[in-house]
Computed example of a mutant assay.
Amino acid sequence: MRGLRVSFGGAVGGVAVMVATLLVAPAPAAGQPTSVAGLLAHYHDLSKEAERVNEELLLVQESLAGQRKASAKARTAADDARTAADRARHRASTVPDLDQYADALARRRGLTALSALADSTSPDDLLGRLRAVALASRLTSTGTEGDAALAAAEQAERAADTAEDAAARAEAEVAAGTTDLQRRRADLDRQIREVRAALDRLTPEQRSLLAGAEDYGDDVVIPGGDIGGMLEFALAQMGKPYLWGAVGPNAYDCSGLVQTAFRKIGVEVPRVSRVQATVGQSIPRSQVRAGDLIFYYNPVQHVAIAVDDTRAVHAPSFGESVKIAGIDAIGPITVIRRVIA
């Protein structure tokens, strides 16, 4: 077993909120709460909503990437089908009227293999007549096959065009969803910056009073093996800022921290917390141990890594840094998963 002593702060607890209700926030922006408690609650509400939007945006962006691949594949198939149809049309336009040509040959004494044998006057004449029969047959069948090939090529072209149009519409719909989510995130970012600016104007006395309620201890014991390696990396990121979409090394979002920490020990997990919540084995709260993943809210929009049965390390939200908090203080738990047995 390896011991690691760390100092950290957790999420603002109930005591902090009760104390903060006695304080008045300095010069809040129009429409913002006037108490420190109100500002804190508003800030965390906005942060959680932004995190939910961010998770949705990650999912939509992954979907958009997949849809763009499908669209590119459909465009390539359509281009190939058009090329094949153009070639078939060109061949059809440059070949003489094969049916008429074959008919002309066939009308030469009612040309058939039997008549060729009966009417030939010499071996050479027979050979010539049989060649004419074969040519007439080939020309007739070639014309029929050419018509069928042209029809098939044009049908494939129409089908490919339809698939390409459908893929383009699907891509446009997903892209529109991405744009809408990006607008929502930008608006939330703006509101969060305003509230954060108000919180940053707190007096030193207000800050010290609030900070005094944030206490989850300062000792973490790191287990051995892969769990220890993953957890040690995650804890080493403490103090680095939260940044949506970041997977390190200088900043993280919640699922980015999890993915990078597990990747350090050679374990691949999905990028988005909502998908991460489907891997591994479900564990009851009473059996949580170091290395388990705790997922929060419904639908899932946040994830933390347990450091023991009471605390977890996570990238909280906007304006905050990677830190340790009480497992139950982070938010309502939806599911706990054990990825490393």
Rank of each mutant, 00 (worst) to 15 (best):
A30C: 04
G228R: 01
L135V: 12
S122C: 06
Q61K: 14
R263E: 14
V220T: 04
A341V: 00
A116F: 09
G266M: 04
G280Q: 05
V133P: 08
S120I: 10
Q155K: 15
L127C: 00
A70Q: 14
L58F: 09
R52Q: 14
P223V: 01
I305C: 05
R271P: 13
L127W: 02
A329G: 03
A41W: 00
H314G: 02
V258R: 10
A251K: 05
I283H: 05
L243V: 15
L46I: 08
R138V: 15
V313T: 02
G280Y: 07
A213K: 00
A277Q: 07
G14V: 11
A104K: 07
D226Q: 09
L46F: 10
V258H: 10
A315K: 05
V174C: 04
A149S: 11
T83F: 11
A118F: 10
D218H: 12
P332R: 09
L114F: 11
A16K: 01
D219E: 10
L293H: 08
L135P: 00
D253K: 10
S208I: 04
T76L: 11
A102G: 04
A175I: 02
A102S: 12
L210W: 02
E320A: 08
I227W: 00
M230V: 04
D99T: 14
D215R: 10
D86I: 03
N250F: 07
H302N: 07
A104F: 00
R2T: 09
S321D: 12
R263K: 14
D218I: 02
V279Y: 10
V275R: 13
R68Y: 01
Y242Q: 04
T83M: 09
E214I: 03
G10Q: 04
Q237A: 06
I192W: 03
A159F: 08
I283C: 05
F233S: 03
S321F: 04
R207E: 07
G13C: 01
L57D: 05
D97E: 13
R183W: 03
V267K: 09
A304W: 05
G239H: 05
T34D: 12
R68G: 12
L188K: 15
L23Y: 06
K73L: 13
R274K: 11
D309A: 08
E62A: 15
R107E: 13
D86A: 15
Y216K: 02
G146W: 01
A11G: 01
L39M: 14
A113L: 13
A85T: 08
I192D: 02
A30I: 10
Q67P: 03
A166I: 03
E205S: 13
L150I: 02
L39Y: 06
T278C: 01
V220I: 12
S47H: 06
V6I: 15
A78P: 06
V60Y: 06
S317K: 11
C254D: 12
S317D: 11
R158K: 15
G331I: 06
H314I: 03
K69I: 14
D86V: 09
T203P: 06
Q206D: 07
R285W: 00
L98I: 02
D80P: 01
G128R: 12
A211N: 05
V335Q: 10
G266W: 02
S208D: 08
